[in-house]
Design a protein around this nucleic acid. Structure first.
Lengths: 191, 191
DNA sequence: GTCTATACAAAGATAGAC
DNA sequence: GTCTATCTTTGTATAGAC
């Protein structure tokens, strides 16, 4: 792992815990045992670092979701497996007890962020909704899911709930809270 | 309106738009045409200001919700009226296009906040869940609502969705998004 | 690629005059 | 209650040596 990767890892960790405006180059430098000027060598400005973090996050997330699509061939169990694959990172995040979704953290301070980062946050949210919408639609066709609303609407509700629950779970320091939400969300889709 | 109130108003506005770590005494002083030392006279430390803002916010919110309880006497329409009264501030916030719920904004940076503020954020979330849980329970009894889950679980889902949707709506700059979520949430409760 | 040195502005805060 | 003045620390960033 290169220094640049170490910096990205730490920056992402800081954003997910303290927010973009809640950490500095000094924090990262101290943890890595280097000087802030070394970080500026890899990422000239803080906004460059922020952009790099969110782009990597989205790329990794989309790769993860594409693996879910591979599982989701046809048949009822496949749709549920794809949904579980999708939910994995959210459950892991909740499990930390200290982090929320990176884009949720950035979304909370979005009016103070450079426009490049704003755009990425919006794109992440749209991607999730569209992907969920598709899988809900397919799951409905295959009989895996039963929906009381249009797939697009259901997808938005589902995603808003997931993200909101992550933040609230952390504030309450109660991982069980999140698990119950996941359970209710899945139950709501069951035929 | 006193200067202290003006400071509180501006601080709240800044937190809801830019986050707690996204504004400074200088920002507020500039807007009010005073010096930062004058703000320190009213609120010695930034954390004092933060605490005052969230405490006022919660007090005002609880007063608003208590008015909803008065509407919620008995009968099916009453439960729906109480719910609409409750939803008012969320809809107003979404309408600004720039703000999210104060506690959501603080919740996003909670790991960087003083413990007094952390505790208030958690209390706000718990209050909302408990209030919603009660009204869902009563509405179910009166036949106003039909629930496919326990009132406590439904309340948590409902609240998580509401808060998550506020943040996502702002990031996407699409108020219609929030209105559709509200519509779906209400439809889901209808018998 | 990392360091030292440095600049320069911003942030949080205090002391004391008016 | 607000001001001026001051202080300290932090944050972001650059120049140039190693």
């Amino acid at each position: 792992m290169s220094t640049a990767d170490d910096i990205l890892d730490l920056a992402q960790d800081y954003i997910q815990t303290r927010g973009y405006n809640g950490f500095s180059y000094k924090d990262i430098a101290a943890k890595l045992g280097i000087k802030t000027s070394s970080i500026h060598y890899h990422f000239a400005k803080k906004s460059d670092l922020g952009c790099a973090v969110i782009r990597r996050y989205i790329t990794d997330f989309e790769r993860h979701v594409r693996q879910a699509e591979e599982k989701e061939q046809q048949g009822p169990e496949a749709a549920w497996q794809a949904l579980d694959q999708y939910l994995g990172p959210f459950i892991e995040t909740a499990h930390t007890g200290t982090k929320i979704c990176l884009c949720m953290a950035l979304g909370g301070e979005i009016m103070s962020l450079p426009s490049e980062i704003r755009a990425e946050v919006g794109a992440f949210f749209s991607f999730n909704e569209e992907w969920l919408s598709q899988i809900l639609h397919k799951g409905k066709e295959s009989g895996a899911f039963q929906l009381n609303d249009h797939p697009e609407h259901k997808a938005r509700i589902f995603f808003s709930t997931l993200e909101g629950a992550l933040l609230i779970t952390r504030a309450k320091q109660d991982e069980k809270y999140f698990k119950r939400i996941i359970h209710s969300l899945k139950q709501d889709l069951a035929p």
